[in-house]
Design a protein around this nucleic acid. Structure first.
Lengths: 138, 138
DNA sequence: CTGGGTGCAAAATCTTTGCAGATCC
DNA sequence: GGATCTGCAAAGATTTTGCACCCAG
């Protein structure tokens, strides 16, 4: 994808960002496609992918590498972390204070110039903590 | 992939784990394949993928969701973090003390049962910090 | 008008699987 | 011998791209 000199507005891109902003989940490209297809029947999946990449290039959207092979996306600006449920796979935004000086500390201990970091917490969400289904191990 | 009742040893799997343990990089399946193919000319990529999944199921290997669409793997040893260079894409292991009580704090602030966390630092590696190639923006 | 954007479909990537034969225990 | 594993190749799944036309600025 070669970066264009300037971006034009497009209804599709605005709608994609709109859905991303309005949802709390972390949709896949395919989910966004089906979601928007209801309103825009001519929408194509390729367009969704192209616009997601554009939105990422513009900094409006982040790609989340969750451990399931499919890319997920979210519209996010402010830094936050993620809670990933190891049982049901749900991904939840999670705001907590940055560990104090973590970037600075990491920079001291490495030879990197640290710009940012990501933290993902893994565990069990409230639902999956319920002992409702006994013996549910994989 | 249906989990077998028990695992047998296989030369291929042992070699794959061996390479993963001996390397500091975080190879993709394809890289492992080409690497081992030198010694085992009949090795197939499918076998690499199958064994990687087996090793993950056994807990010997971890899949790393780095932000580039391709799965990377590493032999699981002790907890550590990762430094990702935003310019050259390299991924480096990085041992630093856990931010104190981070899991406990996260658990208090959420309704999750936190078991573990992952931290990835993003920035510039030592090489890419050198002003050797001026104007290298993407 | 001009360059970015869209739809559609083909292509490229990456990963998984079915099958027959080899291996391990 | 029986379950597991391998190679090979085909199939799946996900993401990118080429092209002709459309739309925003």
């Amino acid at each position: 994808m070669e970066t264009p000199l300037k971006y034009k507005r497009s209804r599709q891109r605005e709608r994609i960002l709109g859905v991303l902003k309005s949802t709390n989940s972390h949709p896949s490209a395919d989910w966004l496609y089906h979601q928007l297809k209801k309103d825009m029947p001519r929408l194509s999946l390729g367009t969704v992918y192209r616009n997601l990449n554009t939105l990422i290039a513009q900094g409006f959207v982040q790609r989340l590498p969750i451990e399931d092979g499919i890319d997920r996306f979210e519209a996010t600006i402010e830094p936050h972390y993620h809670l990933v449920c190891e049982q049901c796979g749900s991904v939840t935004d999670f705001s907590m204070p940055h560990p104090i000086g973590i970037n600075v500390q990491a920079e001291k201990l490495s030879n990197f110039k640290i710009k940012r970091h990501r933290i993902d917490f893994y565990g069990l969400c409230s639902k999956c903590q319920q002992p409702s289904s006994k013996g549910g191990s994989s």
